[in-house]
Computed example of a mutant assay.
Amino acid sequence: MADSLSPECTPLKKTYDSCFNAWFEGYLEPVASSTTDAQRIAHYQQKAKEFEDKCGKVYAEYQSCIQSAVKQKGIEPLLQQAREEHPLLAPPPPAVHPSKD
């Protein structure tokens, strides 16, 4: 795992990265194919709550640290310019893969 933008944020980044990786490993565990749509939705809602409970606080602390570092380093105007020039209005559509018949 790489260091953070600012050295004082690196411990928070490493703590968050470890928390996220542990949570994501469990998130990737497959949901049984025999479950209903409602059960799958409930499962992923539970995973989202689990993330917030386990990693949400350290994520917020890390984001706050990074936002301060961005301001201190004078990067904020560059980020704003990039957002204006290339706004993320919607996610890109999924790639279409030709079928292999």
Results as ranks from 00 to 15, higher is better:
K49W: 05
E50W: 11
E50S: 12
F51C: 00
F51L: 04
F51M: 06
E52W: 09
E52V: 12
E52A: 13
D53M: 10
D53S: 14
K54H: 09
C55E: 06
C55H: 01
K57I: 03
V58A: 05
V58W: 09
Y59G: 13
A60L: 13
A60E: 13
A60Q: 15
E61C: 07
E61Y: 09
Y62R: 02
Q63H: 09
Q63K: 05
S64D: 14
S64I: 01
S64W: 09
C65L: 02
I66M: 08
I66V: 15
Q67D: 15
S68N: 12
S68G: 14
A69N: 02
A69T: 10
V70D: 03
V70R: 00
K71D: 11
K71A: 07
Q72Y: 03
Q72K: 15
K73I: 06
G74L: 06
I75F: 11
I75T: 05
I75S: 01
E76F: 07
P77L: 00
L78S: 15
L78Q: 14
L79G: 02
Q80F: 03
Q81G: 03
R83L: 08
R83S: 06
E84D: 13
E84K: 14
E84I: 15
H86P: 05
P87Y: 11
P87K: 06
P87Q: 01
L88C: 11
P91Q: 10
P91L: 13
